[in-house]
């Protein structure tokens, strides 16, 4: 039912692997997935940008009750991060124990296994953030 669908995972690999996103030429709104129309100003021109690799943690929580495909990783941390350029992004925080979490802490992007599909054995890789080294 809730499986990794390979084409869906694959088609967004620019964002998932490298935080490549689209920035509206007019209002600067950042879109993580290829847009046709800017959701904010409705204009239609975008630049592909690489989002900053570092940011600070502005909120966090720990998932204790996981969805399908994340059972093994539970508990895991979901962080709300403000990147250097002001873009806000939701990400798992890895290499971090809950007691080490601090609001405002500096985090940096890393590349991890996000999810593994049991029946098909496909591995979905993508970004996670970790405390800055």
């Amino acid at each position: 039912m809730f499986r990794i669908k390979v084409p869906r995972y694959w088609r967004h690999k620019d964002f998932r692997y490298r935080l490549n996103a689209w920035k509206c030429n007019h209002c600067g709104e950042v879109h993580f997935f290829k847009p046709l129309v800017c959701r904010r100003c409705r204009l239609r021109e975008f630049n592909k940008v690489m989002l900053p690799e570092t940011g600070k943690l502005i909120a966090y929580t720990i998932v204790r009750s996981p969805p399908c495909g994340f059972e093994e990783q539970t508990p895991y941390i979901i962080g709300f991060i403000e990147l250097e350029d002001g873009t806000r992004i939701l990400s798992q925080i890895t290499d971090c124990y809950p007691e080490e979490l601090k609001l405002g802490m500096k985090v940096e992007v890393t590349f991890r296994r996000v999810r593994e599909d049991d029946p098909d054995k496909i591995i979905a890789y993508g970004y996670k953030f970790r405390p800055a080294i």
Partner: peptide, 17 residues
Amino acid sequence: EYTGFIGATFYSINALL
């Protein structure tokens, strides 16, 4: 594609708020 993919749950987003 965004929040579901990384394992965020409805409650985890509520928790952040």
